[in-house]
Simulated scan of single mutants.
Amino acid sequence: MSGGVDSAVAAARAVEAGHDVVGVHLALSRMPGTLRTGSRGCCTIEDSMDAQRAANIIGIPYYVWDFSERFKLDVVDDFIAEYAAGRTPNPCMRCNEKIKFAALLEKAIDLGFDAVCTGHYATIVTDDVGNRELHRASAWAKDQSYVLGVLTAEQIAHSMFPLGATPSKAEVRAEAAARGFSVANKPDSHDICFIPDGDTRGWLAERVGAEKGEILDRNGSVVGSHEGAAAFTVGQRRGLNLGVPDPDGRPRFVLEVRPKTNEVVVGPKEALAIAEIAGSRFTWAGAAPEHPEVAFDCDVQIRAHADPVPAVAVVQAHAETGEPELMVRPGTPLDGVAPGQTAVVYVGTRVLGQCTIDRTVSAVPTPVS
């Protein structure tokens, strides 16, 4: 129970469905004293109290479990390391993968519980032979299956999402109000929970460090300077200190971040178009394809609120390392994809699997100077 409206209603529905429910709030910070500001952040003391008030109304036991050390190691430190390596991580994916459906689920199973129930908007469907599959929520506008794409078959077998068939968030808020929950109109949280002021650039500079370096064009010519490569991400336009304008006068965007040489590469917007993505860190959300080494049709989604794009996927050996990787070729180029992002693969409404993107191939070749 995060302290939000979705998890409160999910807990109430689970009780009414006949389950023996215990409310658990996750303490993810050793310094939770700062209260939420508007809709920024989550998992504060204020949120814990909101969750407890909802549990009291429902009439279920309520506990706060301290996962702050695990969260720091698996989510915060990973976030810092990924940016230091020039990648763009998704901490919400890591939190679901390592905390909510790993550390939390492991403890729950050890204590004799059958499942972790959350307020995510997604559904679980059992196929004809008994395999549990993760699917999109009925309301695509609120669908959160993307951030659950990291779940494995074992984790899906022990997960419940009571809100998956709900037509809209407005209906959930109305139900919360009818139940007397004080969080009925509480704003949704956004931004990175451990950076509640939203200043990701400043936060990273304190932890990764900032050293002046060069900004290059696609041919390697110096066109500007920067105060620290880790502060940049692929697709970024603002904040570029370019001393040499583009010959065509067009704006330029970050195409690549090179942490080893402390360089940032920029170019035209069309160069952000990506024709191929691949990652060796891939998992299947339920039963794997029978022959993943044979190319298959799918849809790919690279951000939580992005539209899915028709694609072809296949598991193949990396040309240099020989390590298996999930390679995806979209039917139309993807825009501004960065290594470190998560690509979630769908077949219809089903989440088939995901990979953390290791490499991309541009749809626009680098011009020869």
Score class of each variant (00 low, 15 high):
22 V>P: 00
39 S>V: 06
24 V>Y: 02
21 V>D: 00
22 V>I: 11
47 D>V: 04
39 S>E: 10
23 G>T: 01
40 R>Y: 15
48 S>K: 14
24 V>N: 02
23 G>P: 00
37 T>R: 08
31 M>L: 10
27 A>D: 05
26 L>I: 06
44 T>I: 10
21 V>A: 04
42 C>A: 15
41 G>I: 03
42 C>K: 03
24 V>K: 00
43 C>E: 02
31 M>Y: 13
30 R>C: 08
40 R>C: 13
41 G>Q: 07
20 D>Y: 04
20 D>H: 06
36 R>E: 14
30 R>H: 15
35 L>A: 09
38 G>T: 09
25 H>W: 13
21 V>H: 00
30 R>P: 03
26 L>S: 04
27 A>Q: 08
38 G>S: 15
32 P>T: 05
31 M>T: 13
31 M>I: 03
47 D>L: 07
31 M>Q: 11
23 G>L: 05
29 S>I: 03
26 L>G: 02
31 M>N: 06
36 R>D: 14
39 S>Q: 11
21 V>K: 00
49 M>S: 04
44 T>F: 05
42 C>S: 15
29 S>K: 04
47 D>E: 12
27 A>R: 02
40 R>K: 12
40 R>I: 11
39 S>D: 14
22 V>G: 00
21 V>S: 02
24 V>S: 01
46 E>I: 07
30 R>A: 12
23 G>N: 02
43 C>L: 07
27 A>K: 06
34 T>C: 08
42 C>T: 09
36 R>S: 12
20 D>W: 06
26 L>D: 00
47 D>A: 13
27 A>H: 03
29 S>D: 07
37 T>W: 12
22 V>T: 02
28 L>K: 01
25 H>V: 04
48 S>T: 10
33 G>R: 08
23 G>K: 00
35 L>P: 05
27 A>L: 14
26 L>R: 02
24 V>W: 01
49 M>F: 09
47 D>Y: 05
28 L>C: 03
44 T>C: 11
23 G>S: 12
48 S>R: 11
30 R>Q: 11
38 G>D: 15
39 S>P: 04
49 M>A: 09
44 T>W: 10
49 M>R: 10
23 G>E: 01
23 G>C: 10
37 T>C: 14
36 R>W: 07
42 C>G: 06
38 G>Q: 13
36 R>F: 10
24 V>I: 08
20 D>P: 02
24 V>G: 01
24 V>M: 04
46 E>W: 03
23 G>W: 02
30 R>K: 14
32 P>H: 11
45 I>L: 13
22 V>S: 03
22 V>N: 03
29 S>Q: 06
29 S>G: 09
24 V>D: 04
45 I>E: 13
30 R>F: 05
25 H>C: 07
39 S>R: 14
30 R>E: 09
44 T>H: 07
26 L>E: 02
